[in-house]
Design a protein around this nucleic acid. Structure first.
Lengths: 145, 145
DNA sequence: TATTGTTATACTCTATAACTATA
DNA sequence: TATAGTTATAGAGTATAACAATA
């Protein structure tokens, strides 16, 4: 717990953000160890798990991952048969990333693991606090463009 | 903006967390480009900026960075003259990481950049929302041990 | 001219395990 | 025996710049 003084005078919101991200990511990777996925792969699959196809650009915005990083991540997931890059008729420069049958299975397990962590963690949190969390994250993102 | 349906049924708290972390980190590194620091180095310096010495272990807990990663980060920062590893009389297995004079200067600038982002981002956020944010981050970390 | 996505390079971060010194 | 910190290795993530294809 930080001192009152620090909370009021020093920056803490971003430090806490990073700490929480590192921790939850490590916990998530551990709970999904059997699937042998990296943090970025988990992040990517969790985003794709809703079944909506996305372009690489959209996925990059959704995950916060750089395009150049995403190329490698998608390469590995494609090689493992979890997704495909389909031509995009609407814009022939881009692809639509779509989960395969087996990709959907893996993505579902990832999504469940993510949901599990959230359920456990947020059990004692009020809707109002959750709302504040969402608002602050949105504000941080908005200020970082 | 996500659909109502997704907010109520799917996991979003961790996905939003990762997205926000990536974004703010990129913005921070860009605003501190002249200092030529990586995200981890920024995180480390921002934590040390309060002037309190720490062991590597404590720093690892504070930043969420792995010990093995921290060794390299500290190596580089030490080589640049920003910090020193001082013997720790209390426990001779460990070191106390302390900022040097020039390290304090750099850390101050890092801390100011972090504070700037926070001020800008959180200008329109209420204390109550900020409180919810803090509570949720704490809950996520607690559930990830 | 600008954007989408990939490639290339060099460096940083991570996981894992082994190792030394100290507790 | 356990912990603090480092080292070693291999793979993954990053910034940056350049590139082809398309808009």
């Amino acid at each position: 717990m930080k001192s009152e003084d620090e909370l009021s005078t020093g920056p803490w919101a971003l430090l806490a953000l990073q700490r929480a991200t590192h921790r939850t990511l490590q916990a998530l990777a551990a709970s999904l160890a059997e699937l042998d996925l990296t943090a970025s792969e988990i992040n990517t699959l969790a985003n794709l798990a809703d079944g909506r196809g996305r372009t690489v650009r959209q996925l990059s915005l959704d995950t916060g991952t750089r395009g150049t990083t995403l190329t490698g991540v998608l390469d590995r997931l494609e090689r493992r048969g979890y997704l495909t890059r389909e031509p995009n008729a609407a814009d022939r420069r881009s692809f639509r990333i779509a989960l395969t049958e087996s990709g959907r299975g893996v993505a579902r397990r990832v999504r469940e693991a993510v949901a599990d962590v959230e359920r456990t963690a947020l059990a004692g949190v009020s809707p109002r606090q959750l709302d504040g969390y969402r608002a602050v994250l949105a504000a941080l993102q908005e200020a970082s463009r």
